[in-house]
Design a protein around this nucleic acid. Structure first.
Lengths: 127, 127, 127, 127
DNA sequence: GTGGTCTAGACCACG
DNA sequence: GTGGTCTAGACCACT
C-alpha cells in the first residue's frame, strides 16, 4: 500500500502521514472506514509500531482520523472534503509563490501561460 | 545585510547560504568581490563562527564562492549567471509541479491563467 | 435509551455507567426495577457484551445496582438518594474549584455572580 | 521545579505540559527565556528524555514554546497572554457547566452566590 | 485484539 | 552541547 523509504530524509512517520492523506484523496480509504491497526501497519511496512502510532496521532490531531484504544482508527467523517480543500489551498499558494519569483526573475506572464499550455497538452502525465 | 531568524526552523547556516545567494542575484555582491570574513559575519550577525564557516563551505561546494586560505572568500567568476539559471530552473520546476497537482485536483488551465493575470496586474509585490 | 458514541474517547463502559446513573436521576429507572440484561443491552446498543458487563459490575461496585446470578440486575434500594447526594457533592466541588481558579486569575466575585445571573435568566437550557 | 508523580494516571508528559504552563502563568518562566533542555529536565526530574521531548513538542504545537535542534527551547513571545486568555476561558466554561448542572439538580442561584461569598471571604486559600 | 505511555539506547543534523 | 527520529521491549486500559 504505502511505500516507505527508510533512506529518505523525510521522516518515516511523515511518509506515513502523507501516504494516508493521499489514499484518502484517491478514494482508496473512505470516510468512516477502519484503517490498518498500528501493529498491522507496523508489520506490513517493517516499521516500528511507535513510529506508526506517531503518524496516526498526528493524523488524529489534524482531524483526519479518529481512534481510541480497543477500537482502532477510522477515517473521520468529512476528512475527504477538508483534506481536499486544504490541499488545493496549499498547492495554489505554491503555484503563486513560484509564479511570483519567476516574475521577479524576469519571466513574463505569456511565458508562464505558454508553459501551462504545454503542460496541459501533454496531459500532465506524471506523479 | 542578511537577517537571521534564530527562532526559525530552517538552519541558520542555510539562512546564510540563501541570503548570500540572494545578494548575488540582486547585484549587491558582484563577481570577484570579497565578502565578509567568517569572523566579521559572525560578529555582525551574532552567530557562531562555525555556523558561518559551514555556510561558506557549502557555497564553495556549490561553486558560488571561492576561498583562498588566509585571504578570505570571493564571489566566484560566473557565479551570477550560473546562480540565475539554476534558480530559474528550480522555480520553473516548482511552478510546473504545482500546476500539475492542481490539474490533478480538477483545476482548469483557464483558472490557472486567471490567477496569473491577477498576480501580474497586482504587480506581485511581495517576497 | 442510552446513546453510545463509539468515536468518543471516553470509554464505552463509562458512557454506559453515566447513562444509567442519569436515567436513575431522571426517574426513568426506579429503585428495585430490573434493568436490561447484559445481552439485551449489548444487542440494542451494538456493543460488546463484555463492555456492558464491565459497566454493570462497576455500577454494582458503586452500590447503584445489585445483581443476582441468573436473575439479572436491579436498581438498588436507596440508589436514587445516594446518587443524587453524591452527584451534587461532586458538582459543588467542581463549582468551587472553578471559582477558586478564576479568582486566582483575577476574576471578581461580582463578575461570577453576573455570569450566574445571565445563566439563570437564560434558563440554562443545555445538557 | 516541576514535581512529577509517576503513579498518577495523568501521563507524565501531560504533567510536564501542565507544569510549564503553570510556571509561565506564575511568571517563573518569562517570554523569550530559554527553558531547561530536554536532557537537563530529564535528569532533574528522573524521567526519560523521550517523555520530556514529547511534552516540549506538544507545547511547541500549542504555540507556547519555540525550539529547534542545536538551540534549545524558548518561551514564545506572547505565550503568557495567549495562555492566560485560554485558561480563563476554559475555567469559565467549567464554572458555567458546573453551575448549570447544579441548577438542574435543584440548587438555586442564591445558594450558589452564598457558596461564592463563603469562598471569597475565606480568601480561597488552596491550590 | 486495540491504542497509549514509558523506558533505554542509538544515530543524525545543527550550533 | 542542542533537539528529532527510530528501534526494541515493556506495561496498562479498553473491547
Amino acid at each position: 500500500m504505502i511505500t516507505i523509504d527508510i533512506y529518505s530524509r523525510t521522516p518515516i512517520y511523515q511518509q506515513i502521514v502523507d501516504g494516508i492523506k493521499r489514499q484518502i484523496l484517491l478514494g482508496i480509504l473512505q470516510e468512516g472506514q477502519q484503517i490498518a491497526s498500528v501493529r498491522e501497519f507496523s508489520g506490513d511496512a517493517g516499521v516500528n509500531p511507535n513510529t506508526v502510532s506517531k503518524a496516526y496521532l498526528e493524523l488524529e490531531r489534524l482531524g483526519i482520523l479518529v481512534g481510541a484504544a480497543g477500537k482502532g482508527y477510522f477515517v473521520s467523517p468529512g476528512a475527504y472534503t477538508r483534506l481536499r480543500e486544504k490541499t488545493v489551498a496549499e498547492e495554489k499558494k505554491a503555484f503563486l509563490d513560484a509564479s511570483r519569483q519567476l516574475m521577479q526573475n524576469g519571466i513574463t506572464e505569456s511565458q508562464l501561460t505558454d508553459w501551462l499550455r504545454e503542460l496541459f497538452s501533454e496531459g500532465g502525465n506524471q506523479v
